[in-house]
Design a protein around this nucleic acid. Sequence first.
DNA 1: TATTTTATGTAATTTTACTACCTAAATTGG
DNA 2: CCAATTTAGGTAGTAAAATTACATAAAATA
Lengths: 296, 296
Amino acid sequence: MDTDSRIDSRNQGGRNIIEVIRTMRPELRKSDRKVADVVLEDPRRILNATVGETAALAEVSQPTVLRFTTAIGCSGFPDFKIRLAQSLALGTPATHSVLLDTDQPETVAEKIFDYTMTSLDWARSRLDKQALNKAIDVLTAARSIVFFGFGASGIVARDAQQKFPLFGVPCAAELDSHQQVMVASMMKPGEVAFVISNTGTTRSIIEIARIARDSGATVICLTGSDSPLTNYCDVSLIVETLENTNMYTPMISRIAALVVIDILSTSVAMRRSPEHQARVHQMKRQLSDMRRMQPI
Amino acid sequence: MDTDSRIDSRNQGGRNIIEVIRTMRPELRKSDRKVADVVLEDPRRILNATVGETAALAEVSQPTVLRFTTAIGCSGFPDFKIRLAQSLALGTPATHSVLLDTDQPETVAEKIFDYTMTSLDWARSRLDKQALNKAIDVLTAARSIVFFGFGASGIVARDAQQKFPLFGVPCAAELDSHQQVMVASMMKPGEVAFVISNTGTTRSIIEIARIARDSGATVICLTGSDSPLTNYCDVSLIVETLENTNMYTPMISRIAALVVIDILSTSVAMRRSPEHQARVHQMKRQLSDMRRMQPI
DNA sequence: TATTTTATGTAATTTTACTACCTAAATTGG
DNA sequence: CCAATTTAGGTAGTAAAATTACATAAAATA
């Protein structure tokens, strides 16, 4: 219920009809259940089917198919097909149900892929464009950037640190808490501290933001919710991830963060002079040459 | 043309009809273009419209609407609506066109998000379930795992190394080429070498796979295409990414790889005894406690 | 300018979705 | 356990939608 209403608000009218059918199946009429079963068995087939064809597949009458569509909350057969098409939009049936202990690896793969994609869509629609713009401005003007992060966010920090130097901005990634304090307190105006923390509540990372800011650095944070961390930051990039099911959150949060890093680095690169871009191309060529060479 | 035909092969019949309409618009008949415009202006509105209503909106006759649908490659109006529904499934119109120098940050964000999601879907449908199963078997049985990777793949290796120890499997991530050779040559039967390389052509990483295998280790690779690397591996996880536009490939390949790591680690976790899972929960609780504590 | 080709609308036709109604099965109260 | 009532499901007819055939207008070409 709670979950559904949230998803509902995403795009008009209840989403993922397949999931709806699956959950409602037990309380459906016997004949409606027959229809439900042929739909669930191969939803894609229904997309090109008429009421009559669907009825034949389910071995019921046409009005039963119509009654089925209204039973699951659609306004008619065409509407049902539209909903189904949307649920099937990305590959196979999208089931963002929770992982079950009994799931086969195939199912686990499907669910995780699906959940990742859906969550990215969610994050996309929620991303604050203004903050994004401001972050790009700040990063483009930065004399140097230091990325701070722990654990999974440390991975993101490292990833960012590998990307940004391409545009001539000196970068560092600090992942050790002692080192972080030292570096943060030595920062100067014109430098940017980029603080990454999914929870935004990790005490030590909040400290880092505070210290860096006191030192005169501009502080950007990349976090999962409007947390205490944002109080110490000049720009807050909040990447909300879909629900907080303990199982998925750590997975999706770092992926969403990486996508944001992609967006930032690409945008900064695009603002740089063509000269820089030429240099990037040259470097890429060298890298690809290296791949064919024997290492020392 | 080339691009379209490839996308066509994904799921039956050309995908993202909105993009198709946009690209074909100039070469459409005058009246068809009127239809195209009302569709592009507010695609969502068409989902609940009939031929007649669409014709009225575009101020053309009904057959013109029909001719429009066939002109853009649909087999009829209902088919067109289905395609449209699929294109609109995830949030706003999905445009996976190439990045332009003139794109605003908002557009860049949209494009990168969209491209990431689409590519993940592509990777999902292409993932070899058998190899996945085998990899899970091997990892579950492993006495220890060493992850090898360079550059962006090094990030993936680190991420994996942070995840797997949760299930009681000793793990390491080797990112330095000299260190890699040493560790690989010291591996023993029962141990697993997990080699990550997007290109699969990096000379030194292929060497690592060969050395590890010669030492008796089971070798799993995670790579972007059926490359030379796979010759030296017992299990090859090939994560194909959508097209090789130089701009996007490095971004999406590492994200797809991370999702595969998620799937593997989750599946391995699920095969472990409940005892292990309890331990994981306990650890999570400790971590979340730590977040509220002052660092040392 | 005449002729062919292409574009678009009108009107008829077919197909599809939907509704009214009727029968059979199931459920409940006496 | 049987009659009454509700509920499920099918038949057949109806409305509405999509599609086709055809005619006319506009454009292009000779």
